[in-house]
Computed example of a mutant assay.
Amino acid sequence: MNNEPKKQHIVPKVYLQNFVKKNGKLFKLKIDLSIRPRPKELHPSAICYKDYFYRFENYGVAGFEGISDANILERRGFLYENKLDKILKKLIDNKSIITLQEAFEFSFALFDIKMRNERIRNTLLSKESLNITFENLLNEHKKSPESIQPLLQRNGMDFDNFLEVFEKIRSTWLSDISLQKDLHNKYLLENKSNPSSIVKLIISKLALGEWYVLNTIINNQFITSDNPGYCFDGNNCLYNTKFGGAFDFYFPLTPYYLLIIKSPEIIPEQVLPTKRIVYGLAEKEVVKAANQNTMLIANKEIYAAYDSFLIQTWYALKNPSIITRL
């Protein structure tokens, strides 16, 4: 137990370190439009973590068989962080070459950073969302009870028995918050060991999309947050994640660089061994808009190398009349 990792970062510390100043610290601002903004200067190790966030609580029980280490996700699930910063540094250097393999590795890292975030656990796997899933599943079985007859026969049950068991399972899952936590952790673990066809498609769309890297200047910097990255769909609507259909994915890399990935209309069958990246200068209004979107998608906090950019973004959202729209 002494070696059990307690502080588990929801946003990789290696990523946050790209937003520090020479003193190794960055500024944090809690999002609260009702009080005057007062950013605090902290080390990345002091932010974006929760105790035992990725620890399995019910490993070894039904549904989680084969998981013998409660901290397997924290110990082995985020090894991509070892390559994350190296590829990021190459990405912002327009003289470096990004291989197709590196593009896929970086795309998986971006996707996982979004999926490992507490926003996913608190929304898609909330008690309300799980209850809707249970209700939809129950309604399907009620409409077509014959679909589960083989299962009922094997277990010597009739449909009334099934309903009774179903409701007991629903009650257990909705009343035990640790099981909801484990569902999220299991999803993250399976994305690495046995990703679904949907996850593979998303990674391919990110890796094979059009990549643009915009850079800015010292007095007009990008910020990041405790939930970095956001999507626009085909109707230009802002989302935390929206990887179905056409999308543009925005991700702040450093205070000076922003990555934009435009999903391909179709997945190409033949691709080049290296990734084509278009570099350009981010206009002042683009940086402002990106920072405001970062704050809108953040959970509770935004971060920057300098506090002035946090305060500037806070005031923009405090006063909707000055919000930058592109």
Rank of each mutant, 00 (worst) to 15 (best):
M1A: 15
Q8L: 00
H9S: 05
K13N: 10
V14D: 12
N18I: 03
K21W: 09
I31T: 10
S34E: 14
P39D: 00
E41P: 00
S45G: 02
S45R: 10
I47D: 04
I47N: 03
D51Y: 09
Y52S: 04
F53K: 09
Y54E: 05
F56D: 06
E65K: 13
I67Y: 07
I67G: 02
S68F: 14
G77L: 08
Y80P: 04
N82C: 07
K83R: 10
D85R: 08
D85Q: 10
I87A: 05
L88G: 12
I92N: 08
D93E: 11
T99V: 03
E105H: 10
F111I: 05
R119D: 12
K127T: 07
S129H: 12
S129E: 12
S129M: 15
L130P: 06
I132P: 05
I132L: 13
L138H: 08
K142D: 05
S144F: 15
S144C: 07
E146P: 06
M157T: 04
E164S: 15
E164D: 15
E167W: 15
K168H: 13
R170A: 08
T172G: 08
W173C: 15
W173R: 12
D176N: 15
D176E: 15
L183V: 06
K186L: 13
N191C: 12
S193C: 13
K200A: 01
I202S: 03
K205P: 02
G209I: 00
G209C: 04
L214G: 05
N215H: 09
N219F: 14
I223L: 05
T224N: 01
G229V: 01
G234S: 08
G234T: 12
Y239D: 02
N240E: 11
F243I: 03
G245I: 00
F249D: 01
Y250G: 02
F251R: 01
T254G: 00
L258S: 02
L258E: 01
L258P: 02
L258Q: 01
I261A: 03
E265S: 14
I267N: 06
E269Y: 04
V271C: 05
K275Y: 02
I277D: 07
K284V: 07
A290V: 10
Q292K: 02
T313G: 02
A316Q: 07
K318S: 09
T324K: 13
